[in-house]
Amino acid sequence: MTYYRSQLFVPGNREDRFEKACQAGADLVCIDLEDAVGPSEKDAARESVLNWLSRTEHRNVSLRINGLDTEVGEKDIAALSKSGLTLPFVMIPKVASKEQLDSLSKRLPEKLGPFFAIIESALGLINAEEIFSHPRVSVGMYGAIDYAGEVDCDLAWETHLFARCKLVAAAAAYDVQLFDTPHIHVRDLADCEATTLQAKALGIHARSAIHPAQIERIHSALMPTDDEISYAQRVVAAYEEANGNVVLLDGKFIEEPVVKRARRVLTYIS
């Protein structure tokens, strides 16, 4: 499985920024046809994005379609189904149920790629386990901003702790990689890094970005420290030397769950 750290959104009506976004250092780039594009420009943006994707050599770029229950979303799906593209993912906003994805999967060929499901509503959060169990969902994201708008709460970190923890558990249960919500204050890079560290502590090891300057801070937060890397190396070495048996290291029991986490830490330097 490929582990991603970051994803950068770029507006679908700004083709002049597509290539720049690809050079910003993010692991994934998502061209956005939904929130970033106004109603009057959605048709033109869709045509422009699909044409550009058909020409690009970048293999880490895909797009976010509009909502499944909207007329413009229907147009996105119809155009995508005929595009012949192969993509790393198709991002689906405001996913509320597994049944929505069942219906969408029948319309979008497997060749298009897996689904990137955004959980950003109360119903989506309630149904997160079923949504993440869908066979085409390989990546998910918590959309805290839309969620806050629906349930009428603030965006303080503590307010969204339950939602993040629930999504971490659902994602882990179904081997879905979870991204945290973008940091909306693009000039507050210190807080972007700090809140990424908080998400990492919960088990969210990737984050979306809305500005290129955020990418370095996200990667910095997710990169293990030298001490974490050294300890992980010692854990794996001790476990392998013990032939997979429980072993003591620094007075602590080392068994499979601890080794699994250590190996994940080492994926960042492999």
Rank of each mutant, 00 (worst) to 15 (best):
residue 193 E to A: 10
residue 110 E to A: 11
residue 48 S to Q: 10
residue 75 K to F: 09
residue 257 P to Q: 10
residue 206 A to Q: 00
residue 160 H to R: 10
residue 4 Y to A: 10
residue 55 R to G: 08
residue 53 L to S: 00
residue 200 K to M: 06
residue 114 P to Q: 05
residue 93 P to D: 00
residue 16 D to S: 14
residue 46 R to F: 04
residue 131 I to Y: 04
residue 63 L to D: 02
residue 214 Q to G: 02
residue 156 A to E: 15
residue 146 D to A: 12
residue 213 A to V: 08
residue 120 E to L: 01
residue 11 P to F: 03
residue 87 L to M: 06
residue 198 Q to I: 04
residue 214 Q to P: 08
residue 24 A to T: 05
residue 240 E to R: 15
residue 107 R to H: 09
residue 49 V to M: 02
residue 206 A to K: 00
residue 151 V to Y: 14
residue 125 L to T: 08
residue 7 Q to L: 09
residue 188 D to C: 10
residue 137 V to Y: 01
residue 102 D to W: 02
residue 262 A to K: 11
residue 55 R to T: 08
residue 144 A to T: 12
residue 197 L to F: 01
residue 184 I to P: 07
residue 200 K to Q: 10
residue 231 Y to M: 13
residue 62 S to Q: 02
residue 60 N to I: 01
residue 60 N to V: 00
residue 42 K to D: 08
residue 152 D to T: 14
residue 209 A to H: 00
residue 58 H to W: 11
residue 16 D to E: 14
residue 74 E to D: 13
residue 153 C to I: 15
residue 199 A to P: 01
residue 265 V to T: 15
residue 221 A to L: 03
residue 178 L to R: 13
residue 97 S to L: 06
residue 78 A to K: 11
residue 270 S to L: 10
residue 109 P to M: 03
residue 124 G to L: 09
residue 116 F to V: 08
residue 205 H to M: 13
residue 177 Q to W: 02
residue 155 L to G: 09
residue 126 I to S: 10
residue 185 H to C: 13
residue 133 S to A: 12
residue 249 L to A: 08
residue 78 A to R: 12
residue 175 D to S: 15
residue 86 T to F: 00
residue 123 L to S: 12
residue 217 R to N: 11
residue 22 C to A: 13
residue 170 A to P: 14
residue 162 F to P: 14
residue 219 H to Y: 05
residue 114 P to F: 04
residue 213 A to G: 12
residue 45 A to F: 06
residue 256 E to S: 12
residue 251 G to L: 11
residue 231 Y to F: 14
residue 52 W to A: 12
residue 59 R to H: 10
residue 84 G to H: 01
residue 55 R to S: 08
residue 113 G to M: 01
residue 175 D to K: 15
residue 233 Q to I: 01
residue 28 L to V: 01
residue 246 V to R: 07
residue 208 S to Q: 05
residue 96 A to M: 10
residue 259 V to G: 12
residue 139 V to M: 09
residue 171 A to V: 15
residue 247 V to L: 13
